[in-house]
Nucleic acid binder design. Structure first.
Lengths: 188, 188
DNA sequence: GCCATTAGGAACTGAATAGTTCCAAACAAG
DNA sequence: CTTGTTTGGAACTATTCAGTTCCTAATGGC
């Protein structure tokens, strides 16, 4: 009954996610989004409403893709809980050492000023809670369950902190040393 | 030989620091600075050059005031190193519980996008290094010096992470629990 | 008291930004 | 083929921002 859309919505959100991931919500301009999504203004605003609505979709996709992936590592039943945690933190080291300084869209959002928006805040905190539950599960699944539950909070903070610092000029060595400290702490 | 300045430069920088502290570098507008500093545009640009130069002065002042204060806690010789660390983290709990959600200008800067600027990055990383050395000193000054040096990195990350999360909608309970985890970890 | 110099301040500039409008082209249903 | 609807896209709008200009007023040395 009418002209069909020429682009795929999911593809567009995926591309938008990449742009927001690189620059953060506030610093991302609509022009950057249009370039990254290979859309024109008309299409973008008709399909998504406005910048914030698009961001919420991108953040939702990030949660479904990246956060879920991390939680999957933390809850995979084949490994001891501590090994899962080491695996997740090890992936941060690996990323930074291979020159990946993208950080984490969720972590950047949590630590940025866009988190003052109630909708963005709610979504980001929900993802963070999933991450916390993942750490909690992993700690409980350690063969020698000797860590207080508060450690899950510490690990979330450590995770967010490290992925945020990954974006800065902090050297790879510093990131590695922090990850080693986490490993040492879990060894005790 | 000429009309004297009607405001005190140091006062103005102090006020500017407060404004940047509240909103972060990027989100701070010159209008907000003018309001907060009780200056007009002419005076501001004549005295400080531009927004970035003013921010660097504010960050320098923050380093001299706030970072030094934290380092002083971490290096005070009358207490055991571990107690000093607990004291510093305890002050985060206390702040959040009393409704102080200002966070830390250094931590916000480190985790924000303005850190891509080389001058801002250099100054922020230098402050962070001072903080790291403070934690390192405190760990070495613990009666039972049983922690690997990498723990200083972990504590910096934890400190930055917590002060960043203090700004978000994260509940005070979560912050407290994280701080308890740090205390527990240092007790072992 | 005069004058060079600098502060204070209002009005301005130009660039960037999010979001809107409008229209021709495309397409599906009948 | 016709018709109604929605897309794609360009041009436009209104706002906000950092930074500039320029004029007046105050001040201290002479």
């Amino acid at each position: 009954m009418a002209r069909p859309r020429e682009f795929d919505i999911d593809d567009a959100v995926t591309r938008a996610m990449a742009v927001f991931w690189e620059h953060g919500y506030d610093a991302t301009t609509t022009d950057q989004l249009l370039g990254g999504m290979r859309l024109t203004r008309g299409s973008l605003y008709k399909a998504f409403g406005d910048k914030k609505a698009l961001f919420l979709r991108a953040l939702h996709l990030y949660d479904a893709q990246e956060v879920e992936k991390a939680v999957a590592v933390l809850t995979q039943p084949d490994l001891d809980g501590i090994e899962r945690i080491n695996l997740l933190f090890g992936s941060i080291t690996a990323a930074v050492q291979s020159g990946d300084r993208m950080g984490c869209l969720l972590c950047s959002t949590l630590s940025g000023f866009s988190v003052n928006d109630p909708e963005i805040s709610a979504m980001a905190l929900a993802s963070a809670a999933k991450l916390h539950d993942g750490f909690d599960r992993a700690l409980k699944d350690s063969r020698e369950a000797k860590f207080p539950t508060s450690y899950a909070r510490l690990l979330v903070t450590q995770y967010v902190g490290l992925r945020v610092l990954s974006r800065t000029g902090v050297s790879a060595g510093v990131i590695c040393e922090s990850v080693e400290a986490v490993e040492a702490l879990l060894r005790r």
